[in-house]
Nucleic acid binder design. Sequence first.
DNA 1: GTCTATAAAGCGATAGAC
DNA 2: GTCTATCGCTTTATAGAC
Lengths: 195, 195
Amino acid sequence: MKRVLTERADAVSALAEVFREHGFEGASLSLLSKATGLGKGSLYNFFPGGKEEMMEAVLADIDSWFATTIFAPLEQAHDPAAAVTSMIEDVTAYFRSGRRVCLVGCIGLNSSGAAFAIRIRSYFARWISALAQCLETAGVPTSLAEPIAEEVVSGIQGAIVLARALGDEAAFLRVIHRQHSTLLDAIARTPPQSA
Amino acid sequence: MKRVLTERADAVSALAEVFREHGFEGASLSLLSKATGLGKGSLYNFFPGGKEEMMEAVLADIDSWFATTIFAPLEQAHDPAAAVTSMIEDVTAYFRSGRRVCLVGCIGLNSSGAAFAIRIRSYFARWISALAQCLETAGVPTSLAEPIAEEVVSGIQGAIVLARALGDEAAFLRVIHRQHSTLLDAIARTPPQSA
DNA sequence: GTCTATAAAGCGATAGAC
DNA sequence: GTCTATCGCTTTATAGAC
């Protein structure tokens, strides 16, 4: 009975890949139609608002995936070191070692992202705050946790840009490994808080 | 006698700003025409190859600016600490504290950058190697200089993505400040090599 | 809900007057 | 060397048959 929903969900992930690879402007309806296997008419049936509504659906899908897979585990971490390690692994897999770009970060870079500014902003704000919260759970003081979280999230984005530019997945993995170490060092350096 | 050349150079910087703000696909000829103040016919007179040749000229211009302003001073640094500080200042000004995106990094992110892959790759490769060379001049061992240089260049790109996404120049400045410290620490930590 | 056909607009690119 | 007019094509989006 929710067949239409699952079909829409299938379409969304196909749409996402086209937006990722070609950007918002470069993702033409013919490309989107081909990738989803749906005619233009069907696409407009699912997304009456056209490309903008498609992108909005894609961003919402990404947001919910990150919320459950990345953000929530960080926010509710019992074992902070394990949580950050898990984040690094999930992110490395998600971004395919830098072969796959971060759509949220990408569309924020040019004018086509203006329509999605609030969503883009909240994605990064929550990622940073979730990671900072995880570090604070480990006892890292807020004054240290916030800038470290900001630097690591920023560093992941930089790793994607660099890996794509160099065509070198190894570069992504090296940079991400350093971010991982930064997080673990911050946790390890913190003297255990005895209650 | 080189009037035509200076006019072409003026056009190139105007073109660059349109490509930065709208991306390659989003930069339509009407936008490019308006920004340069030249009609389509004049644009095709300067750039017979159309948009692709315009972008190629823009990238060449960026490349030469970075070569003289950023890369060469790093490669020939007598005072490595001063050189990295100078790089950080120049880069902060050039990217307008993250309001201005890195065109080279941006077009590498989606399929429109495929035509410029070699230029994109060499830009980042030279930036990293120039920075690593500067660190080595300071006595930092290659095994340390290379990954640090890679991380800093990557970190600058990440800072741009983050600042644009959050609409927050201060985030750019904070991240860049940490990259600066990373570089200075690496230099300071190195025991002076007495000849 | 799916498709094909089509409308209207904008695109990159060219031609030709000046 | 600059512009305007225009070509041919693709774009987004809609309409209507099934």
